[in-house]
Simulated scan of single mutants.
Amino acid sequence: MRIAIAGGTGTVGRHVTRAARDAGHEVVVLSRASGTDVLTGEGLDDALIGADAVIDVTNLTSLSAKRARAFFENGTRHLLAAEERAGVRHHVALSIVGIDDIDASYYAGKLAQERAVAASAVPFTIARAAQFHEFAGQLLSGVPGPFAVVPRARVRPVAAREVGAHLVRVVEAGPQGRASDLVGPRDEDLADLARRQLAFDGIRRRVIEVRFPGAYGRGLASGSLRGGADAETGRIDFEEWLRSEDHRRG
C-alpha cells in the first residue's frame, strides 16, 4: 500500500512512518521539508499521485480555539480536496479521546477537523487516542524557569510509538468511520507525570497544578480525557516510556 503521512516527521508522525515502513508499505511523508504544505495545498497533488491512503497527524500547539479551528479546518480541507482529485480511497485522521463535550481551546480545532473529515466524499476513519506520554514534557518545555504551571487533568496517557502502530493497523483495516479508541494502561494526573519526569531527568523545578478556567479547564479536570471502558489499551506505561529511547531528556 502507498501511504501518505501528513505530519510524518512530528511526535507521532515519525512513529507512524517507521511502523508503516516496517509493515512493508511504501511511505510518502508530507511536510514542508519535502515540498508540501497542507495549509496552502502546495505540492499535495503531485505527492498524492498513486497514494492509496492518507494518515493525517499534523498538529498545532495553541490554546486559541480560533487559531486551532483555522489550522485543522484549512489543512483538512486542502488534504481532502487533493485526495479526491487523486482518487485516494482512505483518509485516517488522528483525534483525541473524550473531547465531545469540550468544544473549546485546542479541542475545538480537533472537533472541527472531525466534522470536516466526516462531511467529505473521501472514505474515512477517525482514530482517537489519549494524550501521549510525551505531553508532560511538551508542557514543561513550553515556558522555561524555576516553576512549571500544569493544568489539573486526569488522563490515561499512551506512548506515541503505540499510537503510530495503531494508526497503521487502522489504515490497513480500511475505512470504518470511527476506529476503536486507544488509551494508555493506567490513569494518571498530568501534574504528577510532570514531576516524575523532572525527577527522572534530574531537573530541580517546581510544578504548580492549576485548575484552568472555562469549558476547557472543566473538561481537563473532569476525567473524560481518559476515554471509555471499551477503548483499546496500550502496554507501555509512563515509567517504561521514561526509560526508553523515545524519551528525550531535559
Rank of each mutant, 00 (worst) to 15 (best):
P175S: 01
W241Y: 10
R161H: 12
D45E: 15
Y216E: 06
F147Y: 14
I236C: 09
V28K: 00
L225I: 03
R206V: 15
D100S: 15
G174Q: 08
G250S: 12
G184H: 03
R69N: 02
T125D: 07
P213S: 03
D181N: 11
H166C: 06
N74G: 13
A33Y: 07
V97N: 07
L193I: 04
T125S: 07
T9G: 01
H91V: 02
T36P: 03
A51T: 02
S222I: 11
V150E: 06
R249C: 07
A70E: 14
T40H: 12
L140Y: 02
D45P: 08
A86G: 05
G41S: 02
T9M: 00
S34E: 13
A121C: 09
H15F: 13
G24W: 04
S224W: 04
T9Q: 05
G184W: 00
V158R: 01
A23S: 13
Y216S: 02
G227A: 03
R161G: 06
A119I: 11
V29P: 01
T125A: 05
H15D: 03
R154A: 12
R218E: 14
T233V: 15
A104V: 00
D230W: 04
R206T: 14
R161F: 08
K110Q: 13
A119Q: 13
I102S: 07
F71V: 00
F200H: 15
E172N: 04
A20W: 00
S105A: 15
L44V: 08
G109C: 02
L60E: 05
F71H: 15
A116M: 10
